[in-house]
Deep mutational scan, measured.
Amino acid sequence: DESNKPILLPNESQSFERSVQLLDQIPSYDTHKIAVLYVGEGQSNSELAILSNEHGSYRYTEFLTGLGRLIELKDCQPDKVYLGGLDVCGEDGQFTYCWHDDIMQAVFHIATLMPTKDVDKHRCDKKRHLGNDFVSIVYNDSGEDFKLGTIKGQFNFVHVIVTPLDYECNLVSLQCRKDMEGLVDTSVAKIVSDRNLPFVARQMALHANMASQVHHSRSNPTDIYPSKWIARLRHIKRLRQRICEEAAYSNPSLPLVHPPSHSKAPAQTPAEPTPGYEVGQRKRLISSVEDFTE
């Protein structure tokens, strides 16, 4: 099969070098950035008060330690540790928490760990991170309901609301924008112990962030949302095809390698009803078989 044979790379090609550099910018793992907010007593309706908090309760602090690993920003190499735009020179604080497994990295933009500057009256330095995160974990210690939209931002799609209760338990629920209701189930609340709260809140936030990324990708319907490693695979396959075309153009005697095509017509299947918005969006999480067989 010609399409699977190794090909020689061009010795000097600026377009090839640019493509390789672009490939280096696509990590081999999925990345997520999640905002974390603490809401104190009497702050449920005040964005400024929430963003001005420099610490929270003892249970909130224990919750943070379970979310991930504490890292010092100045020691991080952005090409190895995903920071979601946090500055490593102290502009966004000294520490944050991050978490990773074999296929993804997540960083938490924690408002109480970011510096509260006197010259920044409206807390814009914090909002440029927190307001651009799709998902926020809100530790609501106010005793009042927290409403979506209290923290203004164009991309605040989903809130994971943590409400501490007695007996070391917590109520965990989801809020989302109306255009996200087909992807996020907000109907079920959970009672979770303090011990298990970081794991549950983190998983709910990661799932909500993946759904938000799919939702946000609708602005470019021709580019369905893939995982990062599938995006790398697609980029490599496009690069291979372009090299083959350039080689055939410079030397017409060489065969032009095309991806294999299936001449056999697909079997006719009964027509199915058109899937609704929710089903269609969830299918976009699934990769096409052509990603692996071309």
Score class of each variant (00 low, 15 high):
residue 3 S to N: 13
residue 7 I to N: 04
residue 12 E to F: 06
residue 14 Q to M: 10
residue 16 F to D: 08
residue 16 F to E: 07
residue 18 R to K: 11
residue 18 R to I: 05
residue 20 V to S: 07
residue 22 L to T: 06
residue 23 L to F: 05
residue 25 Q to Y: 06
residue 25 Q to C: 08
residue 27 P to Y: 05
residue 27 P to D: 14
residue 34 I to M: 02
residue 40 G to H: 01
residue 42 G to V: 01
residue 42 G to D: 03
residue 43 Q to K: 02
residue 43 Q to P: 01
residue 44 S to Y: 03
residue 46 S to N: 14
residue 48 L to C: 09
residue 51 L to P: 02
residue 52 S to F: 02
residue 54 E to F: 03
residue 54 E to A: 06
residue 55 H to C: 12
residue 58 Y to K: 07
residue 63 F to W: 01
residue 64 L to Q: 01
residue 65 T to P: 02
residue 69 R to A: 15
residue 70 L to M: 10
residue 71 I to H: 07
residue 72 E to L: 06
residue 72 E to K: 10
residue 73 L to H: 13
residue 73 L to C: 10
residue 73 L to G: 12
residue 75 D to Q: 13
residue 76 C to D: 14
residue 77 Q to C: 14
residue 80 K to C: 04
residue 81 V to T: 10
residue 84 G to Y: 06
residue 85 G to D: 12
residue 87 D to A: 06
residue 95 F to P: 07
residue 95 F to T: 04
residue 101 D to L: 00
residue 102 D to R: 03
residue 104 M to K: 02
residue 105 Q to G: 04
residue 106 A to W: 08
residue 107 V to P: 02
residue 109 H to D: 05
residue 110 I to Q: 03
residue 111 A to R: 03
residue 112 T to F: 01
residue 114 M to T: 04
residue 116 T to S: 14
residue 116 T to K: 12
residue 121 K to L: 13
residue 122 H to I: 06
residue 123 R to W: 13
residue 124 C to P: 10
residue 125 D to S: 12
residue 129 H to A: 10
residue 131 G to W: 15
residue 131 G to R: 15
residue 133 D to R: 03
residue 134 F to M: 07
residue 134 F to G: 01
residue 134 F to Y: 04
residue 135 V to I: 01
residue 135 V to G: 00
residue 135 V to C: 04
residue 137 I to A: 00
residue 137 I to C: 00
residue 138 V to A: 01
residue 142 S to L: 01
residue 143 G to F: 03
residue 145 D to S: 07
residue 147 K to F: 06
residue 148 L to T: 15
residue 149 G to H: 08
residue 151 I to R: 02
residue 152 K to C: 10
residue 157 F to L: 14
residue 157 F to M: 15
residue 162 V to S: 01
residue 163 T to E: 10
residue 169 C to Y: 07
residue 172 V to I: 12
residue 173 S to Y: 07
residue 176 C to F: 03
residue 177 R to K: 10
residue 178 K to F: 09
residue 179 D to C: 11
residue 179 D to L: 02
residue 180 M to V: 15
residue 182 G to E: 06
residue 182 G to C: 10
residue 186 T to N: 07
residue 194 D to L: 00
residue 195 R to C: 11
residue 196 N to R: 03
residue 200 V to G: 00
residue 201 A to G: 01
residue 201 A to H: 00
residue 202 R to N: 01
residue 203 Q to N: 09
residue 205 A to E: 00
residue 209 N to E: 03
residue 210 M to W: 02
residue 211 A to S: 03
residue 212 S to I: 08
residue 215 H to L: 12
residue 215 H to M: 14
residue 222 T to W: 06
residue 223 D to M: 07
residue 226 P to F: 04
residue 228 K to A: 07
residue 231 A to D: 12
residue 238 R to W: 11
residue 239 L to F: 09
residue 239 L to K: 04
residue 240 R to A: 12
residue 240 R to T: 13
residue 242 R to L: 15
residue 243 I to C: 07
residue 243 I to F: 12
residue 243 I to E: 10
residue 246 E to Q: 10
residue 247 A to C: 14
residue 247 A to M: 14
residue 248 A to L: 06
residue 252 P to L: 09
residue 255 P to G: 12
residue 257 V to F: 12
residue 259 P to N: 13
residue 262 H to A: 14
residue 268 Q to G: 11
residue 269 T to N: 12
residue 269 T to R: 09
residue 271 A to K: 10
residue 271 A to N: 10
residue 273 P to M: 13
residue 274 T to E: 12
residue 275 P to V: 08
residue 277 Y to V: 13
residue 278 E to V: 08
residue 278 E to W: 05
residue 279 V to M: 11
residue 280 G to L: 12
residue 281 Q to Y: 08
residue 282 R to N: 14
residue 283 K to R: 12
residue 284 R to V: 12
residue 288 S to T: 09
residue 293 T to F: 04
residue 293 T to G: 13
